[in-house]
Computed example of a mutant assay.
Amino acid sequence: MSKRRLSQLVIYILLIAGLIIVMMPMIYMVSTSLKPNGALYEYPPRFFPKLKEITLENYAYILGQKKFIGNFGNSILVSTLTVVLSAIVSSALAFCIARFKFPGRSLLFGFIILTMIIPGTTMIVPQYELAVKLKTINSIWGLIPFYVAWVIPYSTFMIKGFVENIPKELDEATYMDGGSILVVFFNVSIPLAKPGIASVSIFNFLTAWEEFPWANTVINDDLKRTLPIAISGFFGQHQFTQWGYVFALSVLSLIPILAVFISCQRFFVQGLTAGSVKG
């Protein structure tokens, strides 16, 4: 065997091993969700359930509870509005920073970069005080503005790079044809920066969908909670954790994430490769 084929074989083995390691938690989650709760505590434990043990009772229980359907809807609403609002605000901000020169431009961008390195958990106390003043405690509307504020710095930073790579000659041609700044923004910058916007939108959706500490702090009503809080409610319930329900709800929570990633995959790949080749 030649050295080249040997090196390729080693690479394939490492990639397959890495794939197995990455997929094992997800496979275990799906297999556990198909087991009856009593089978989870058997000894010795089994990774996969027997064919006769496979059941959908955990999914039937989750889908039969109105509060979980409501929690699912809350997460969809919060995540979708976070993505839409952050895309609008960060795109406009990135366009202004990339295309216009004004006093304090570098200072503003530096401040945006600075906010990216501040851990979100350190801001919970002042955020809570602000939420109290805004009277958004125990309301899903108290989540959206804070989520948007969290993701705007990173989104602006990323989209700014895409806008800067758009030739300014396109802007000038639009101005010569009588187009306004808004025409340039919506008809030139937004379409050409779409891969970057889609890439950060996936990140923003995941941030809002999976966020736990802030939602657990401001939401007390079970019907107003998001999915991560609903999942945590099973831990310690009835003196033990109902892992079948936990993993069934976790599997269902992956569906919107997969849908968003699949629908934006083309733009996501373009966003990752943009700038790697100079035309």
Results as ranks from 00 to 15, higher is better:
Ile229Leu: 13
Pro145Ala: 08
Trp214Ser: 11
Thr156Ile: 01
Leu227Gln: 01
Met123Ala: 10
Thr156Met: 02
Ser79Thr: 06
Gly196Thr: 01
Arg99Asn: 15
Ile144Leu: 10
Val84Gln: 11
Ile27Asp: 12
Ala208Thr: 06
Ser180Asp: 07
Ser250Trp: 02
Lys50Glu: 14
Val151Thr: 10
Gln237Met: 12
Phe185Met: 11
Leu56Gln: 04
Gly73Met: 15
Phe72Asn: 06
Leu107Ala: 14
Ser79Tyr: 02
Ala173Glu: 05
Gly120Cys: 01
Thr156Gly: 04
Ser90Ile: 00
Gly18Ile: 04
Gly70Cys: 05
Ser263Trp: 02
Ile166Tyr: 05
Lys160Arg: 12
Gly271Gln: 05
Leu19Asp: 14
Ala131Leu: 06
Ile255Phe: 03
Leu6Lys: 15
Ile197Glu: 00
Ile262Leu: 03
Ser139Asp: 13
Thr32Cys: 04
Pro213Ile: 04
Tyr147Trp: 07
Tyr128Trp: 10
Leu182Arg: 03
Ser250Glu: 05
Gly142Ile: 08
Met29Trp: 11
Met29Asn: 12
Val260Trp: 00
Val200Ala: 05
Phe162Ala: 01
Gln127Lys: 09
Met158Glu: 01
Thr273Lys: 02
Phe162Thr: 02
Pro126Tyr: 10
Pro126Gly: 00
Arg225Met: 14
Leu93Trp: 02
Met123Glu: 04
Pro36Cys: 15
Arg266Ser: 14
Val30Ala: 14
Phe146Glu: 08
Pro167Asp: 06
Leu63Arg: 05
Pro36His: 14
Arg99Thr: 15
Arg225Thr: 10
Ala173Pro: 02
Val183Glu: 13
Tyr175Trp: 09
Cys264Ala: 13
Val184Pro: 04
Asn74Ala: 05
Gln242Arg: 07
Ala17Gln: 12
Ser90Asp: 02
Pro103Met: 08
Gln239Pro: 00
Ile159Ser: 00
Leu6Phe: 14
Thr241Glu: 06
Arg105Val: 07
Gly236Thr: 12
Ile219Asp: 07
Ser75His: 06
Ile159Phe: 00
Ser201Arg: 00
Trp209Gln: 14
Ile69Tyr: 14
Phe72Met: 13
Ile76Met: 12
Lys67Ala: 04
Leu63Ala: 10
Gly233Phe: 15
Ile118Asn: 10
Met1Gln: 04
Val84Glu: 08
Ile88Met: 04
Ile152Leu: 09
Ile202Gly: 01
Val183Ile: 11
Ser201Phe: 00
Met176Cys: 14
Val78Asn: 11
